[in-house]
Computed example of a mutant assay.
Amino acid sequence: MSAPSPERAEKRRRVLRVLDEHGVDAVLLQSQPAVSWYLDGARVHVSLAGPPVAAVLVHRDGDELVTPANESARLVAEELPAGLRRHEVPWHGSLTAPEDWWPGARALAVASEDRVAAPLRAARASLLPGEALRYEQLCRDAAAVLTDALAWATPRTTERELAAELTAGLVRVGAEPLVVLCSGADRLLHRHPLPTTGPLGRRAMAVVCGRRGGLIANVTRWVRFGPADPAEADAHARIAEVEADVLDALRPGLPLADLLPVVRGAYPRHGFGAEEWTRHHQGGPAGYAGRDPRLAPGVPDLVHEHQAFTWNPSAPGTKIEDTVLLGPDGVRTLSVDPRWPVQRVRGRDRPAELER
């Protein structure tokens, strides 16, 4: 059996520490974020809305991977890394009962993924160098897809036509379109605008969440056809200041929940209603899940160095969103396209609206 890659060897060490800390012999990885992370970004889905078609039992003596028999050939030929013992079940069999497909599991205390969910998030939080490079390229590609689509669009383009262009762009760069949102001028009050047949009109927002190699890039961009409305420009500048408050507060070791008071205070500090933060989620750590997890009261996670984040503060008619990485020198934006106009906010280039 081939040795695992250096990255997966480090991931295995991290999972074994979770086992030691919780006094169990093994953990069954079965969620999309956990399985794809552990298998070096393998595509272990068929339906984007369905569960993975693989699970991994990680124990102290090795890794056991199980797939339905009808999926095994593709996964082995195209997706799976080396260093795994493989097992198969019938297409109608269960991946979640390891004792049925590997007898050795019967002698082990096996933890469910749910039992150690927070420690597993911590295990994948700090991106390894290869992961960070792959993530940055994905984020740049996603930003370029938005630039291309919004440079192509016109006021008469419908939201669905724009969504089709965005989806095609993501697929062309090898990414899976997990989220594609578009709102024209008549629907800008909606925070999650699923596309309709309505035209974009004088101003529009587009959002993509694209997954490649298991990692997910999250990006929002705005386009307007004509000069800026002063009130809209002011709101866009102020929402960037809300984001800047959160970016300035990020530091390794900080309890993630400590950022919630920062978010709450940022809205009224920059001229928005004090309850605005309650009207939409504010983002959180990113990577192998869109938010891993969302910032919310009581989250137990810590902030890690080399961890990715996507914050998405919003108010009626304005929103800002990029995927960033917290490194030893601070925050660096990953979802960058040099063709996109920027505004300088506290020493960082942040996306402005594209004027057409």
Rank of each mutant, 00 (worst) to 15 (best):
M1H: 05
S2E: 09
P4K: 05
P6S: 14
E7K: 00
R8S: 09
E10N: 03
E10M: 11
R12M: 04
R13W: 01
R13I: 04
L16K: 04
V18Y: 02
L19N: 02
H22W: 11
H22K: 05
L28A: 10
Q30A: 13
A34T: 06
V44F: 01
S47I: 01
S47K: 05
A49C: 01
G50V: 04
P51Y: 07
P52C: 13
V56T: 01
G62R: 03
L65F: 01
P68W: 03
P68C: 10
S72V: 03
S72H: 09
A73S: 07
R74K: 02
L84Q: 01
R86C: 07
H92S: 10
S94G: 01
S94P: 00
A97Y: 00
P98H: 11
W102S: 11
G104E: 02
A109V: 12
E113G: 08
D114T: 09
L120F: 08
R124A: 12
A125W: 01
L127D: 00
L128D: 07
G130P: 00
E131T: 09
R134P: 00
E136P: 00
Q137M: 13
L138Q: 06
A142S: 14
A142W: 01
D148T: 15
T154G: 05
P155S: 10
T157Q: 03
L162Q: 04
A164Q: 12
E165F: 02
L166T: 08
T167V: 07
G169P: 02
P177V: 15
L178T: 05
L178I: 08
R187Q: 06
H192C: 10
P193E: 12
P193H: 10
L194W: 04
T196E: 07
G201V: 06
R203E: 09
A206H: 04
V207A: 13
R211W: 06
R211C: 14
R212F: 02
I216T: 13
V223I: 09
V223F: 01
R224I: 02
D229E: 12
A231Q: 05
E232A: 15
R238I: 09
L254K: 06
L256I: 07
L259G: 11
L260P: 04
R264A: 14
A266D: 07
P268T: 08
H270S: 11
H270E: 09
G271D: 04
T278N: 10
H281M: 11
Q282F: 09
P285C: 13
G287F: 02
Y288A: 14
D292T: 06
A296S: 14
P297L: 14
P297N: 08
P300T: 13
D301L: 15
E305I: 11
Q307L: 13
W311Y: 15
P316M: 11
G317R: 02
T318Q: 09
K319F: 08
D322L: 13
V324M: 11
L325A: 14
V331L: 10
L334V: 11
P338N: 15
P338H: 14
P341L: 10
G347M: 12
D349T: 11
P351E: 14
P351M: 14
E353P: 02
